[in-house]
Design a protein around this nucleic acid. Structure first.
Length: 275
DNA sequence: AGGTGGACCCGAACGC
DNA sequence: TGCGTTCGGGTCCACC
């Protein structure tokens, strides 16, 4: 293969020309995914880690069939005569070339388990959330908790689970963790089944819009009635991100009167947290 | 040391 | 109409 990289941001801090030269002559052995990373494995043992961020996309076309595109940042010319174009309007996406043996450590340092794998269980999630004081939504967005949750599906998962996004992650009761586990899986499966959500830029590789945005229960629905109870969805901010939830179904203090268990930490009322 | 918020980028949507 | 401002998405990094 032969590679042309036009955006210096794409390979930063490495020089685009030297990365392109390094890729020259490589042969693709497999294409894979881990979390939000695409993994292109080469026969040499090296791998190219591609992160599309929000507006990145790959387009495969026969040689010379690519239409002009001001947002094309790179082109890979494959030996079979086809081209792969990398497009990214906002230039947030990244290409990182890793040497043989570097991939596993790089990913392991950043990513938790795959939520749709059998290994992702309530028990596994409970381990990851133990002792964490961050809001559950922040913990879900942390890719080390589990791989692949973004802002939209975190809101959807928590709505499905009926858990308030600001609940301290380490204080979730076992049944809540079970529901969050299921909510994560169901939200992601729904998104995959509908080929993602097209809010603005995203399209499938064949140029079609995703349909998940038509199914949102919480995300972006401030003021609209909750599909479960009719209470208007509210918007707030958690971990710096827009966050939508049902104030009735997702309560901050779910067992205010129940008590009995969960007595470990004394309530510190002195700390004022404005919501 | 874990958690938080700003920086990065740029088109769309908004306010005046 | 035309301008300026705000927003958002994921990750890294500085700071508390």
């Amino acid at each position: 293969m032969q590679v042309e990289i036009n955006d210096p941001r794409l390979t930063r801090p490495f020089e685009r020309r030297s990365v392109a030269a390094e890729l020259e002559g490589e042969t693709v052995a497999a294409v894979d995914r881990r979390g939000k990373y695409l993994v292109v494995r080469f026969e040499s043992g090296r791998s190219l880690l591609i992160h599309l961020r929000m507006t990145g996309s790959l387009l495969h076309a026969r040689n010379g069939a690519l239409a002009d595109d001001p947002y094309r940042r790179a082109v890979v010319r494959l030996d079979d005569g086809s081209d792969v174009a990398y497009r990214d309007v906002r230039r947030f996406g990244t290409w990182l070339l890793l040497e043989p043996g570097e991939l596993d450590d790089y990913l392991a340092a950043r990513l938790g388990s795959e939520p749709l794998d059998r290994g992702f269980t309530a028990r596994r999630l409970a381990e990851r959330l133990q002792d964490r004081r961050a809001p559950i939504k922040a913990a879900l967005l942390d890719q080390r908790t589990l791989a692949g949750m973004g802002n939209i599906y975190a809101d959807e998962a928590l709505w499905l689970a009926r858990v308030h996004p600001l609940r301290p992650a380490g204080e979730l009761a076992p049944d809540e963790i079970t529901r969050v586990t299921k909510g994560v899986k169901d939200a992601l499966r729904a998104g995959v089944a509908r080929q993602g959500a097209t809010l603005r830029d995203y399209s499938t590789p064949d140029g079609r819009r995703g349909r998940m945005q038509l199914e949102f229960k919480a995300y972006g629905r401030a003021g609209e009635p909750c599909d479960r109870c009719g209470t208007p969805i509210e918007k707030t901010r958690v971990a710096g991100r827009g966050t939508w939830f049902c104030p009735m179904c997702q309560q901050l203090e779910p067992r205010r009167y129940a008590a009995s268990r969960s007595s470990r930490r004394p309530s510190r009322s002195s700390r004022q947290s404005s919501v």
